[in-house]
Amino acid sequence: MIPFSRRSWLRLAGLGTAAGAGLLSARSLAGQAKSGAYDAIHHAAHAMGPVGRVSTDLFDPSGFLRAWNFSNLAPDKRSRFYRETPRPDGTLLREYEIIAVDREIEIAPGVFFPAWTFNGQVPGPTLRATEGDRVKVTFLNQGSHPHTIHFHGWHPPEMDGSLPEHQVMPGGRFVYEFDAEPFGMHLYHCHAVPLKRHIHKGLYGVFIVDPKGEPRPAADELIMVMNGFDTNFDADNEVYAVNTVAHHFMHDPIRVQVGSLVRMYVVNLTEFDLINSLHLHGMFFDVYRTGTSRQSTETTDTIMLCQGERAVLETRFRYPGRFMFHAHQSEFAELGWMGLFEATGARRDT
């Protein structure tokens, strides 16, 4: 803006008014400005949202919803990153290869973020095991800074990836090995310092442990990571999203079946903002906080999650059509954390 001193524009204002007292009315100018000023733009509500689309060649937030243990890769490529071997007790040894690499990712149309990633994607690949399985993660740091993987879950201290001696230097390797427990919806992230930067640059992912014995009821399962990006490094996020790309699910709604059980694994990995939330339009869902119990603790349509907090949400769509979901912090919603479900099938009244 051109900074007129307060004096010069007040000065002008006075003059404009005075001029109005004479031959022409400055007020009439203002009045004219007022009338009809908003006719056009009041109908422009659809103009909200970014311009253009993000290429999904590199990372598809929709594909991320339903992929775990590298199930999005062809078998020959998948074996490079994930192998499972049965063990005598009936559990599995699950071996993963996780690589930290620097990569520039597109987080809103035309906006590129110099991310630190696990396996070239943000969020990192989703790891999923059954309670009691042995998890063995070979971590290779090919990034430009020291990194670690810190898993949430039971594990011995040397597998914690948090203390200075746990840092894996660039070019270095470390094998994390532990039993998957307890069952629930967990996460993993880099715990190198400065912690805030290592997390907000993109080093995080989802770690799901399914209950052993009787599994959860079959459902359409969706991984939803609430995240944000501070593109100008002012400790405030410019972009918010579910699964990284701002407003992605506005253009590519999450397709679900009316009447089928839908299970959402939701985690808040937003930095800088204390809390984030998920609000689903037109329905309610059952909440299993941290997913560690088979008993739902509440039924609501809006759930608030602190940084690192997560929950499993279950619902069934009653009506076909589009349902919006977004953070109930309106600011986050309008900065990208907003999307749509699209339910198909015959309407089911319960």
Binding site: L10, L12, A13, L15
Partner: peptide, 25 residues
């Protein structure tokens, strides 16, 4: 120079209305 600033402020819409100020000027 003053006229430039005034005209510009008017054109930029940075003018608010205040009737007494003309006396000061």
């Amino acid at each position: 120079g003053e006229g430039l600033a005034i005209g510009a402020a008017f054109a930029l819409g940075e003018a608010a209305l205040g009737t007494l100020l003309i006396l000061g000027f």
